[in-house]
Design a protein around this nucleic acid. Structure first.
Lengths: 170, 170
DNA sequence: CTCCTCATGTAATCCGTTACATGATTCC
DNA sequence: GGAATCATGTAACGGATTACATGAGGAG
């Protein structure tokens, strides 16, 4: 049930249409909480029905500009402060590691080396993203940077781990 | 479609019943790919129907001991070597960080401090798990340790990040 | 004989993905 | 007038979660 709160969160600063939100998603939350167009529009209708957001203005081509309601902001705060984050990690990458015993040592090292490269690339992408963002001052700048720093440290850690793991085989 | 392969993987070393597999899951793969009892039994029936596993023996109380078939092992190898791992991370914890701007700086620091504690506890749990496992020699020992090391490094990184992030606010 | 563990299943619901479907407006 | 972009939706399907449901066998 987090897409719901992601959308509420994006609407705190500015009102926006589904189309706008989709683009925002793909450029900011995509790494943290991917969502498809279909899912997003469906969720917006549910949120409007629940009174957490409301259509503030309509535009051309049936465009609906949504704004956060007081109930919506309250719900977002409630979620942030009074509910526990679920943190069951699912990692297909790691699941595969468990079963590398069924392929040759060579093949296993190859798998880990590919991972190392992948993580390096992701690091580079994030550094590129960091440069491309217009970091205005404000909350979003502070917390956006903190989230990005997480990504950088995460990928660095994973790359070091993969390189270390290669040494452990045989 | 990874639960499928997780089950195949667990059946490589030994045949087992759904009940056995469920316990195995909860003590080894739970951190990497959680699955519920319901899901597991459903998937086992699908796997049997697809011919990737077969009932090797039946026991009391309707117990069905499943064993991997040749097709099952082939499918597992295919998955490991010829398909790309999906790695879209979803992190509710990070999603919340993005929106910490809607609560006070104090509350935000509190949130991050709680995370730091949580990560420390998870590290401790993993170290406990490491001690409790009977590390026989063999593939599973090597790759199980590699997966566990990932968890240890991951939690250490996250704890350092959370502590760093607290300093960034205000 | 009673309780605990073993053991398997089904149903309802929700979330996410893929694909399909449609049409208005703007720009050239 | 044609293409690109803006803009919203629905349907089908599959995977995951929760809850419900049942019963056999072993231990004391």
């Amino acid at each position: 049930m987090s897409l719901r709160h992601a959308l509420l969160g994006l609407l705190v600063d500015r009102s926006a249409s589904g189309y706008d939100l989709l683009k925002l998603f793909n450029t900011s939350l995509a790494n943290v909480w991917p969502a498809t167009q279909s899912q997003l529009y469906t969720e917006l209708n549910k949120l409007a029905e629940a009174g957490l957001i409301a259509v503030a203005a309509e535009g051309p081509r049936g465009r609906k500009q949504y704004a956060l309601t007081d109930e919506g902001l309250a719900e977002l705060r409630h979620w942030l402060t009074e509910t526990e984050p679920q943190h069951q990690g699912r990692s297909e990458v790691l699941l595969r590691v468990f079963f590398l015993g069924v392929v040759s040592h060579e093949r296993a090292r190859e798998y880990l080396a590919d991972l190392s490269t992948l993580f390096a690339e992701e690091s580079a992408d994030l550094r590129e993203l960091e440069r491309s963002i217009d970091w205005e001052d404000g909350d979003l700048a502070v917390y956006g940077r903190i989230a990005l720093e997480y990504g950088l440290r995460f990928n660095a850690m994973r790359q070091e781990w993969a390189d270390w793991a290669i040494q452990q085989i045989k």
